[in-house]
Design a protein around this nucleic acid. Structure first.
Lengths: 134, 134
DNA sequence: CTGCTTGCAAAGGCTTTGCAGAACA
DNA sequence: TGTTCTGCAAAGCCTTTGCAAGCAG
């Protein structure tokens, strides 16, 4: 994704495209991936110090609000941000700590519980924890 | 659940029944509920007993390992412990912060993705985030 | 006795905040 | 120019840890 595409993407999501946000988004969308705030800080700054820790946290909070990324809460350690914007679920290997995507089509959620009056589902979160240990 | 039942439950789960653990378990199993570590600390100590913060954290970690409770990661704020030991899922109201149980029968997960060689699912985690705001 | 457990306080580690200066529209 | 954003350091907060004293079996 080149710079002008990123700018467009940010604008479409109602995010003012500053230099830092463009760099962070550029790093995130190199490929679909699962990153922590620290990963992002390191990755973006790998070519030289250009974005501060506070800005990474600010920006990821903003991107989450604006629907550019999804937070995944896997463990108590840290938040992961998922840059795969298509509907999908996760398989988490508790032995290795690896997190994998599962296409929506591989899991079928049938039936929907009754929700409070006027409520709608804003996010469907499915994590299968798997282990190879007995 | 009376004291002897709690002792038995702990022993069945391979947990040495100390005074603190019995008090914590007694508080947890008054009713199915979703509690944070701080909730538990306050709740247990409000009943006139005395358990330290470190012991609450220790104990909840142990109870989780032994399968007496389940950790629910809803937001970045804190961990909730679920004392409902039956299979079930959750609906989280993002507006109010309320967390509700959904019986397993209300959601159907059909099809299972292919897992790594020899892996098995140790936990199935489903959270529907709902909102009433436009 | 002998190894777990507990409790206190201090440390840890991720995340947020206050505020001054810089960038944006 | 008025607003928004950034960066630094400090603060916040939940959770863990080190270690001496206390219990369980």
């Amino acid at each position: 994704m080149d710079r002008s595409q990123i700018v467009k993407l940010l604008q479409q999501h109602d995010v003012t495209p500053t230099r830092q946000r463009i760099e962070i988004a550029g790093y995130l969308y190199q490929r679909p991936q699962h990153l922590s705030a620290e990963n992002i800080l390191e990755g973006v700054n790998a070519e030289g110090h250009r974005v501060s820790r506070a800005t990474v946290y600010n920006t990821m909070g903003l991107f989450t609000d604006k629907g550019l990324v999804r937070e995944i809460l896997i463990d108590r350690e840290r938040i992961f941000y998922d840059t795969n914007r298509s509907e999908h679920y996760h398989v988490y290997d508790v032995d290795s700590g690896e997190l994998h995507d599962v296409m929506q089509s591989e899991i079928e959620i049938a039936a929907v519980p009754k929700l409070p009056e006027g409520a709608r589902i804003v996010d469907t979160n499915v994590i299968l924890r798997v282990s190879s240990k007995s």
